[in-house]
Structures are given as structure tokens and as C-alpha cells.
Design a protein around this nucleic acid. Sequence first.
DNA 1: CAGTGGTCTAGACCACCTC
DNA 2: AGGTGGTCTAGACCACTGT
Lengths: 260, 260
Amino acid sequence: MTGQLVDEHVTRRGHTLLADLVLDRDSPVPLYHQVLSRLESAIEGGELRPGSLLGNEIELARQLGLSRPTLRMAIAKLVERGLLIRRRGIGTVVAPALVRRPFALTSLHDDLVAAGQHPVTRILTLHEMPAPDEIATALQLGASAPVLHLRRLRLVDEVPIALMTNYLPLGVLPDAGSGLEGSGLYDLLRRRGVQPKIANQSVGACAATATEARLLAVRRGAPLLTMRRTAFDDSGQPVEHGIHLYPADRYTLEMTVVRR
Amino acid sequence: MTGQLVDEHVTRRGHTLLADLVLDRDSPVPLYHQVLSRLESAIEGGELRPGSLLGNEIELARQLGLSRPTLRMAIAKLVERGLLIRRRGIGTVVAPALVRRPFALTSLHDDLVAAGQHPVTRILTLHEMPAPDEIATALQLGASAPVLHLRRLRLVDEVPIALMTNYLPLGVLPDAGSGLEGSGLYDLLRRRGVQPKIANQSVGACAATATEARLLAVRRGAPLLTMRRTAFDDSGQPVEHGIHLYPADRYTLEMTVVRR
DNA sequence: CAGTGGTCTAGACCACCTC
DNA sequence: AGGTGGTCTAGACCACTGT
């Protein structure tokens, strides 16, 4: 059995497909990232068809005018994301569409966004408060240390999609988060020079309380998807703890896992 | 602000800590993986304390008797997993324990396993059947093509933790899965030479139906965490589709995300 | 300024797969 | 046998960080 990749698709080499890739060696963007971006858009755009062979690394590197390790770095990152599949003795092929595009859009959130609706964020709460014990622990603060408490409701086309509750150590957002309606919390943090780098997430489920049900427009006791997260910057300092609730019938969390 | 890493912990170099690492250049295990494993156990075992500096890459490579790119590969994989944090101009430090060990054991499942209880798997269903449309699509089979239908209940200390429903194309498990009680499905597949390599997962929530409630020992309508997954081998061939249900009060999904 | 990780090169040999 | 990716080397220069 040769596998569907070679059977079902025309096996084309990528020789000429990347001909338009001109590398800018003066750009601050690393060469491997330039290659990565170009390959990614070629795959997403259908220019490189699923199952097509990328061709021998050494030859491809020569054509692009860079070294093999550099090209390999680009390929490795795309393999990690499930866009490419490498097999020793075979070559590097573009992953089948089914592998790359997991499930048909099934959650209402994705349907609405795909339909051109933009998410809107409504701020419900934004004030300082003494940290509850659990939050103080997660953020490595002393008991009852003051934190910024933020609660937002995200809607798409007037339909509530997420209820997001966040706690931030004071000092992370000195001006208490002006501009949160326009952009996400993480964008805002990044513009303030805070870079969430590592996050620990815990995903679970719960039944909606009366308050949650009212805000999310579901019945009381309706199943909610929950996501708790603590984010750290690159010095290991906690910068945010969030508890996000999603109505189960409107939102799912999609992920691709590649075995190490 | 220097950051908690340097403030709170003695900043030790790893000079002598890896002194016992002897590389086996004849081993089939790659050098970078030998280093990776040693570093990992040193971190997990507390030999390398959180916040301690790993020391300059070039020097460390020289001490270990290998090249810098090889050492860098080992470090890079640990950075991806959130065990190490690299900062330009600073160095590589061991991530704080809070970053590495996300949340206190909160789910019943983890509590029970930590208490020394072993999970037990009970097989409820194991037979061939024509694939339902949705399954046939996910596995890229023709409508009503025969598949192996498997349903298992996992228990820890007599408490149901997961209801797992799986569909496999025929031929993936020729002997219809003998030995499933003793080991997991993926272990069994691997022993049969099938290597699940990429999986697409969709995590959501739902309310327990009457049947699910009975099997999982929860009330009807109780919130369940759901995980749907399609797994592919390294040729992009679908090898399994699974629908797993977890009682929300006994199970959470933990993950660490590192920003690219 | 000195020290760190980030990127890049031009080779080499090996293990694995297909024919 | 021939081609592929997997691993490894010994250098180089650059960008960023803290003093």
C-alpha cells in the first residue's frame, strides 16, 4: 500500500512553484521565516496541492540560494503545525486537506465569523479589587493583593459567544485597560510592552449558573465549555489569569496535535 | 525590574550539574535527545532548580563535547514544552515551577491516579458495523463502509472517568483488538505497526443523555467535556475517529501553550 | 562594553524507503 | 542501488541585554 497521498493526487514537484520567492537578506525577518511564510501561503492558497512532493531538501535549498539547515528550519515549523509531512526515504509532502482543515465548521462562532460577522466585545466590569485566594495563588501575589478585575462579553451578530473573566496584577495595565473594546486583551498587553509567552490552560465543562445563563443567553444549567488560563511573560512572571466560559452549542476548541 | 527569576532564586550555573552526562555516540538515540532527556530529568528531579541559569550555549556545548547546533536542538525542544525559557542577552533559565506544573491537581481523575489508583478499561462494544455518514466522512471511507466500532468505559477506583467511542477502518486492527483491556488503543495500534502521527481534536461540552448518564454515573443533563478526534498516520491516512466523554466534575484537559 | 541567544553557512555521514 | 530525510560538525556574523 503506497498510501493515499501518492495514489490520489498528481505527484508534482515544487520546482517552479516557488520561483517567485525572492529572499530579502537585509530584512529583519529571518530567511527561514520568509520561506515558511511563502510555503504556508502556497499551501493555503492551493498553489501547492495536498499530496504534492516538495522535492529534495538539498536541491530546493540550492534553488532558493540558502543552506539546507535554514530550509529545514522552515520545513520543520510547518511539520509541527501539521501542514507538511516528512518521511524518510520518501520526501516531504503537503498534508491532505482533511488533516489540515480538521472539521467542517460546526460551531456557531466559526459559522458567524466565516459569514463575515465581526466579534464585538462588551465590557461588563473593570475595576481594582483584592485578589481572591485562588487568583492570588495563580498570580503569585500575596493574599488579598490588589488586582485588576475585568469581565467581558463577546458577541457575534448579537449572539453571546464567550464570557471572559480576567485578573491582572496591578502595573501590568497602568491605565486600567482603555481601548479594550477595540482589540483583544492580548493585543493590548503587547502594545503595552507585556508579552504573554507561556500559558497554562485547563479546559473543562460546567453547568451555567443563573448569572452566567442570563449573560450568555442560555438556560440555567446548560453545558458550558470552560477554559482557565494563567499566562506568563518571558521572565516567568504571571501577567494574567483568565476564566472563560463558552456556550457548548456555539463554540468548540479546535487543535491539531503532532506526535513528537 | 529584573524579574522574579533572578530575584527569588540563587542563580547557579549548570556547570557541574551535567557532569555525569556521558554521551553514547553509538546509540541509536540521537545525541540531542540524550541531552534533552538528561536535562528534562534534571529539571523534573529538582537537580536544576527553577530560575537557575543553564549557562552559555557555546561553553556548555564544549563541555558536553558536541556542537552548538546539536545542543541548541535539545534546548529548543524543552523550550517548546515550557521547561526552559530562552532570552537573548540573558541566557537560558529553568522555568519557574508554577509555569511547568500548571494547576494543582484539581480533577478527580488526577487525584485518584496520584493516589496510586490505576485506571481500568471495560469494553462495552466491539464489533463491525457500517459506518454512519459522519464517521465515513471523517475516515474518508465510502458511505456505509464497514468499520470497527469500539466503546469503552474507563474507571479509576470504580469511578467512571471516561466513555470512549471509537471507529477504525477495517484492516487497521485485523484481529479486532484483542488486548484492549490491558493497554490503551494507541499502544495497541503502535504494536500493530500503525503509527498515529497527526490528530485533529475538537473539544467542547454537552449535557449527558440518559444512556451516557447511566454509564458515567452522573445525573441526566449533567455537563460533560467532549473530545472528538480524527487521527492520521504519517501517510495522511485516517486510522481512527474517536468521541470521548468526560464527566465535568472529574476530568479536565491540561495544556501548556508556548507563543511562537 | 562584553555576553547572550538568533541566524546562517557548507559541508559530512547515517538510516530508512522504494525500486 | 539510489534517493530521501535525520543527524552532526565547526565555524561565522548579527541583535539584543545589562553594566
